[in-house]
Design a protein around this nucleic acid. Structure first.
Lengths: 224, 224
DNA sequence: ACATCCGCAATGTTGCCGCAATGCAGGGCA
DNA sequence: TGCCCTGCATTGCGGCAACATTGCGGATGT
């Protein structure tokens, strides 16, 4: 387990380094963004602890780069800038967690443990099939950069089918995904949503078809 | 994206439900641990929002169970109990994040987005033979990752043969596997299903052949 | 008040599956 | 070896259940 600390305040950095090394982590430390970029290029770290306020810029710029080049690499931001807006910005940039200085070392360890439990590979935020790009985070379907005008139920159906594209989704699973479990549907409403969704997909040239698996459910696949 | 809220304070729960539904999530709500256990057993949620202080116990007990039964399921704890010791306990029990009440809704959304970037863990039980992978859980046959378009009866036949691949399956056993005990077939219907299945297997290049054992039954094996 | 969404039901369409007809192949017996 | 009989192989057909599609009206939010 190799950790990179990006932190310009020497005292904090040394403290972190000491406690982390005591936990048998391998710890590197850099004080500037430029050096951090260099470090992540040459070494594959398992975790980044990142201060935001650095001499040569905002640490979030590093997050942005890391998220494209090392999508699965856990990043915990450490920052004195801790109001809601800052935290939201940090997490949305792709940080896995956000700790506000000053923080208890015990909590930092707990959050490191939490982050390490996560599977190594990052979930795709976009699912592609045919000409369609499904943005999982924003729940939007795009064809050639254009947003499909889908209503809520259609979106839920599409999202569920996209997650298992190429494989069957049980009718029951679809119903549960589209409605909660209190809400229940008493007719062929699901079918009608599928129908409208099909029309919109074909009109948009998504290159996808929703195939019914008789007695089982539906399945989404790229049209030949 | 289907979310379960476990929260006994109705007002908070309703607020969360409303804002989450406005974000096009499908939201279920339960007020007690017992109901939460039941809910997660029957529905596969994408995210759990969990209050700690519940009428019938500490929400962390649910975390413990979920971590063994649904290792990949994201859990965010919402709690008024927010000192370092509580937070560490929550995270170490397996929660993915820990928000302290009162919290800004914006931050909750940001943390939901952060958690959602992670991949879903899926465990699938599979039987392999030739170029074919039979997914027992989903009842699907794949060749080179592509789903074979088999109808129900064909699937039952294939599943039964796959489970005893290389060995003969009595005609009687096959009939019983394809139809129930009650339903019985009065003609050579089974043979016709075997026939159609053979055609589909060969067209898909499954590298399998179904061999008839005269007077006994059928047998599946990899073609040389 | 208006538009939109969505559940529902009526009507049209598809395709699974049981059935049976026909063809084929193997094996027992003289 | 030739004949026949039995059991498997294949294919087309029809009934029926499941799916597809669409219009309507109530509900909901702006």
């Amino acid at each position: 387990m190799q950790i990179l600390i990006v932190e310009d305040e020497i005292e904090i950095a040394e403290t972190l380094r000491n406690v982390l090394q005591r936990e048998l982590f391998v710890v590197d430390h850099v004080a500037r963004l430029a050096m951090a970029h260099e470090a992540v290029r040459s070494i594959s770290y398992d975790l980044i602890l990142l201060d935001r306020t650095l001499p040569d810029g905002d640490g979030l710029s590093l997050v942005r780069v890391l998220r494209t080049e090392h999508p699965g690499l856990p990043i915990i931001v450490l920052s004195a800038r801790g109001d809601v807006r800052d935290r939201v910005a940090g997490l949305d940039e792709g940080a896995d967690d956000y700790l506000i200085k000053p923080f208890a070392l015990e909590e930092m360890f707990a959050r490191i443990r939490a982050v390490r439990r996560r599977p190594a590979v990052l979930c795709v935020e976009e699912i592609r099939a045919g000409a369609l790009v499904f943005d999982v985070v924003h729940d939007e379907a795009l064809v050639a950069g254009v947003r499909l005008d889908l209503v809520r139920r259609e979106l839920r159906v599409l999202a569920t089918l996209m997650k298992r594209r190429g494989r069957t989704v049980l009718r029951e699973s679809l119903e549960q995904a589209v409605y909660g479990f209190d809400d229940e549907v008493q007719s062929n409403t699901l079918d009608s949503h599928v129908s409208r969704l099909r029309r919109k997909l074909s009109e948009a040239g998504a290159g996808l078809e929703i195939h019914a698996v008789r007695g089982v459910g539906y399945l989404l696949r790229a049209s030949t």
